[in-house]
Amino acid sequence: TGEEYIAVGDFTAQQVGDLTFKKGEILLVIEKKPDGWWIAKDAKGNEGLVPRTYLEPYS
């Protein structure tokens, strides 16, 4: 389980392990790392690192 967040901007993977997403996408945050990069999963089940500055809590 995780917390749902909504993307407030588009993000394109910079390196292997990053997750590309579009503004408005709902992501499930699995782990919040202290460096500001969180592990998240998208609706298709893809998992990767995302920058927390692009996310806001979804309710």
Rank of each mutant, 00 (worst) to 15 (best):
T1F: 12
T1A: 14
T1I: 11
G2C: 09
G2R: 08
G2D: 08
G2N: 09
E3T: 13
E3K: 10
E3F: 10
E4I: 14
E4L: 15
Y5K: 01
Y5N: 02
Y5C: 03
Y5Q: 01
Y5R: 02
Y5H: 05
Y5I: 01
I6V: 10
I6L: 08
A7Y: 02
A7F: 02
A7L: 02
A7K: 00
A7Q: 01
A7V: 03
V8S: 07
V8P: 01
G9D: 13
D10E: 06
D10I: 02
D10A: 08
T12L: 12
T12W: 13
T12P: 05
T12V: 10
A13H: 04
A13M: 07
A13S: 11
A13K: 06
Q14E: 09
Q14N: 11
Q15A: 12
Q15D: 12
V16P: 14
V16R: 13
V16N: 11
V16S: 14
V16D: 13
G17M: 06
G17P: 03
G17D: 05
G17A: 06
D18H: 15
D18K: 15
D18V: 15
D18W: 15
D18F: 15
L19M: 07
L19F: 03
L19V: 03
T20I: 03
T20F: 04
F21D: 00
F21I: 11
K22W: 08
K22A: 08
K22S: 10
K23N: 05
K23I: 08
K23G: 04
G24D: 06
G24W: 06
G24Q: 03
G24C: 06
G24E: 03
E25M: 10
E25G: 04
E25K: 02
I26Q: 03
I26L: 09
I26A: 03
I26K: 08
L27E: 00
L27Y: 02
L28I: 11
L28C: 07
L28H: 10
V29H: 00
V29S: 01
I30S: 05
I30W: 05
I30K: 07
I30V: 10
E31I: 13
E31C: 09
E31M: 11
K32V: 05
K32Q: 07
K33M: 08
K33E: 04
K33S: 09
K33G: 11
K33W: 09
P34K: 09
P34T: 15
P34Q: 13
D35I: 04
D35E: 08
D35S: 11
D35G: 10
D35R: 04
D35K: 05
G36K: 04
G36V: 04
W37D: 03
W37H: 06
W37Q: 06
W38I: 02
W38R: 01
W38F: 05
W38E: 00
I39D: 02
I39V: 11
I39K: 10
I39M: 14
I39P: 02
I39L: 13
A40V: 09
K41W: 08
K41C: 07
K41T: 06
K41N: 05
K41E: 04
D42S: 07
D42I: 02
A43D: 13
K44H: 13
K44F: 13
G45F: 04
G45C: 06
G45M: 07
N46P: 01
N46C: 09
E47Q: 11
E47N: 08
E47K: 10
G48W: 03
G48Y: 02
V50Q: 00
V50G: 01
V50R: 00
V50F: 01
P51M: 10
P51R: 08
P51I: 05
P51F: 14
P51V: 04
P51D: 11
R52I: 10
R52V: 09
R52W: 14
T53E: 14
T53F: 12
T53A: 14
Y54T: 05
Y54C: 09
Y54R: 08
Y54E: 06
L55H: 00
L55V: 07
L55T: 01
E56A: 15
E56F: 11
P57G: 04
P57F: 09
P57Q: 08
P57K: 12
Y58C: 08
Y58H: 10
Y58L: 10
S59G: 13
S59W: 11
S59C: 13
S59Q: 13
